[in-house]
Amino acid sequence: MAAVDARRVERGDLDVIDTHEELAAAITRLRDGHGPIAIDTERASGFRYSDRAYLVQIFRRGSGTLLIDPIPFGSLADLAAAIQDEQWILHAATQDLPCMREIDLIPNNLFDTELASRLLGKDRVGLGAVVEELLGIELAKAHSADDWSVRPLPASWLAYAALDVELLIDVRDRLAEELIDAGKDGWAKEEFEHLLGFRPKPHDPERWRRISRLSSLRSPRQLAVARELWLARDDYARETDTAPGRIIPDRAIVAAAQALPRTLNKLAALKTFTGKESRTQIDRWGAAIRRGLTTEELPQRTARSGNGIPHPKGWANKRPEADARFKAARPAVADTAEQLHVPTDNLLTPAYLRQVCWEPVGTDAESISQQLANLGARQWQIDITAPVIAEAFVEAA
C-alpha cells in the first residue's frame, strides 16, 4: 500500500483561515488556480444538535489547500461567487450540501464521487475505500468522529481534513473515465444535476419512534411517556446545541417509560435513568413524564405512513392486487439492477416503486413512466425501469 507522498500533494499552508483579510487572500488564490474545486466539510454531529459546518476544506490545482473556519464569517458567498462557474467535487454530497447552503456555498455544477462509485457498482464507496482502490493510497480515518467544534483545532486534525480534498480531484478524474467506459456518464450527469436541488426531508413528526429498543415498550401509555421524554430532550438539545444522546441516552428514556415513575423522587431513584443531564434537568424530565401519563393522545403501536401507504407486509390483506404487483415488480427491478451492476436503490428509489405498485395511474409503460417522472425519478431510471415494471404487472394480473 502506497503512503501519501507529500511531494505529489499540492499543499498550501494548513493554517486555518478565520479573518476577513485571510479570506480575501484565499479567494484570490482560488481565482488564480485552474480546473474543478474539491470541497468537504467537517461537522460535529456526535456532539452538537445542529449540523453546521465547523471547517470547510477546499483544494484546487494551482491554488493549494484552503482550510476555512466558517464560524467567524457566517456567509461564504464571496468565495462561492469566485468559483461559481467551476465544477465542485464532493464525496457523499447529500451530507455536505445542507450545511454548505447555510453558509451560502451553493454549487451550480457538481460531481459526487460517492454517487459515481455507486453507479459503477463498486462494492465499497466510502472515500477511504475509493481512494485506496483508484489511487493506491490509504487514508486514515482517525478523526472522522471527533468534535470539530472545538477551538483551536489540533494540527493532526487539520492534516487529516486536508487529505480529504487533496486527492478528490484525482479520484474524480478516474471515476469520470470509468463512467464513460461503462456507458454510465449520462446517468451520472442526470444524478448530479438532480443533486443540485437536494434538500433534507422535512422533520418527521414521529421521529421519536427511532428511539433504540422502543419495541420493548408494550403499552400505549409507555409509548406516550417515551414520546414526551424524547420531545423534551429534543427541545433541550436544540436549545443548548448538544447532541441528544449526550443529554440522556435512549436507553434512559426507555427505562423511564417502562417504570412509569409518578414522582420526581421515584424518577431520581431509577438507577437505569442515566445521562449527563439526567439529574440536573430532573424537573424537565419529570414534567415530560407527567404529560405522558396524563395525555389522551396515546400513540399507536406502529407508525403512520407519511404518504398514506401501509407497509408492504400488510398489502396481501388490504389490497391483494397491489401485493401481487409489488411481489412481481420488486424482484424484476432488482434483477435488472444486478445485470447493470448498480445498487437497486440507485436504479429506482424504493418509495417510488411502492407508490406505483400500490396505486398505479396505469399499468402500461407509458403511464408508469409518467407516474415515475411525477414522483421525481430521473429519465435514465424511467427508461430502464418503466418497461420492466410494466412487464411485471402483466405477469401479476
Rank of each mutant, 00 (worst) to 15 (best):
R7T: 13
R8C: 09
V9S: 06
E10A: 14
E10D: 15
L14V: 09
T19I: 15
L23H: 00
A25V: 06
A25Q: 07
A26K: 00
I27Q: 01
T28K: 10
R29Q: 15
L30Q: 03
R31I: 00
G33D: 10
I37V: 14
I39D: 02
I39M: 14
D40C: 15
D40E: 15
E42A: 10
A44K: 03
G46Y: 12
G46I: 14
Y49D: 04
Y49E: 07
S50E: 09
D51R: 15
I58A: 06
I58F: 06
I58S: 13
G64Y: 13
A81G: 06
A81H: 13
A81D: 13
A82W: 06
I83W: 08
W88S: 04
C99T: 06
C99N: 12
L105Q: 01
L110W: 07
S117R: 10
L119E: 11
R124H: 14
V131I: 10
E133D: 09
E133M: 08
I137V: 11
A140I: 04
A142F: 03
H143T: 09
A145P: 00
A145T: 07
S149G: 05
V150R: 03
R151D: 08
P154A: 15
A161H: 12
A162F: 13
D164K: 06
L167A: 03
R172V: 00
A176N: 12
E178K: 03
I180H: 08
D181I: 11
A182T: 14
D185A: 10
G186W: 00
G186S: 12
W187D: 04
E190T: 00
F192L: 05
H194Y: 07
L196N: 08
P200T: 08
P202D: 12
R213C: 07
R218M: 11
R218N: 13
L223T: 02
V225F: 11
V225K: 01
V225Q: 05
R227G: 11
L229A: 05
R233W: 06
R238W: 05
G245F: 11
G245L: 09
R246E: 04
P249L: 02
I253R: 07
A259K: 13
A259N: 11
R262N: 08
L264H: 02
K266Y: 05
L270H: 06
K271N: 14
K271I: 03
K276A: 14
R284T: 08
W285P: 00
R290I: 06
L293M: 10
E297C: 03
L298M: 12
P299K: 04
Q300K: 13
A303G: 10
G306L: 07
G306W: 10
K313D: 12
G314V: 01
W315E: 07
R319V: 02
D323E: 10
A324C: 05
F326R: 02
F326Q: 02
K327M: 10
A328T: 10
V333S: 11
T336L: 07
A337F: 09
E338H: 13
E338F: 02
E338P: 00
Q339F: 09
H341S: 15
V342I: 15
N346C: 09
N346H: 15
L348A: 10
T349N: 13
Q355P: 09
G362E: 11
G362P: 10
G362S: 08
A365S: 14
E366C: 01
L372S: 06
A373I: 14
N374F: 04
A377I: 09
R378T: 01
W380Y: 08
W380T: 03
P387S: 07
E391P: 05
F393A: 06
A397C: 05
